[in-house]
Design a binder for these strands. Structure first.
Lengths: 109, 109
DNA sequence: TAATTATATACGCATATATGTATATAAGCA
DNA sequence: TGCTTATATACATATATGCGTATATAATTA
């Protein structure tokens, strides 16, 4: 029973990794293939140090892997399942929005 | 482009909800049907106030719904998809463990 | 109404997380 | 070697999060 708690802690750690909008944007960028830090910095529109730090978090939790080619470091998703997880979060959010819209309509009509 | 960021913030908020071991335990308890705060307090083995606060977080993010029956408040999952999300997190964790085991074996042999 | 049970919230505190800025490391090239 | 580009990290700081404790609210019953 108590040993279970360690498992839930690991799962929570994993979820923490997804609990930041910029990291979710990075994951979304990597969805269709590897990207360099420079690529991601350009897309996210934040200082390069910010991107590097988020990538460090993703690396430390095993969400992404890296490959160096000369000066550039290419990041990619370590596991295709990660995309599925993001998709489900998206779906849950959509259903919440739909539900809220229903409530709003009932209140307004 | 910038409007996208708001969407990622919402998704991150949703992930934050899952980013705590006790909340994950609560969700797992609710997987097979509604439970009272008392039930959950007994399972989690923490002060009742702790459970109530976590339930408040889950409520505020639309993860659970409540139903009062007399003195008791029954909590249940608002969306069956939430279980799917937790299952995928579980799978990702398992694959990570498996990968680490492979690495460990290569190092030891 | 008073007492009891079940649940929710307020307050103070300790820890975690994200960021800006500056700097360090690493590879490639003149 | 010195310079430039690409990436990573250190430090200080602001904000967020979880918890223990105490207390508030709500429903039930005597």
């Amino acid at each position: 029973m108590n040993n279970d708690y360690e498992l839930y802690k690991l799962k929570a750690e994993l979820c923490k990794t997804f609990a930041d909008p910029k990291r979710l944007m990075i994951i979304n960028q990597l969805r269709h293939g590897e990207k360099t830090v420079g690529n991601l910095t350009q897309v996210l529109q934040v200082p390069q140090a910010v991107v590097s730090r988020h990538l460090a978090v993703l690396r430390s939790r095993g969400i992404v892997t890296t490959r160096r080619d000369g000066v550039n470091v290419y990041y990619s998703l370590a596991n295709p399942r990660i995309v599925d997880a993001c998709d489900i979060v998206h779906e849950i959010l959509l259903e919440q929005v739909a539900r809220n819209r229903d409530i709003a309509e009932k209140l307004l009509l």
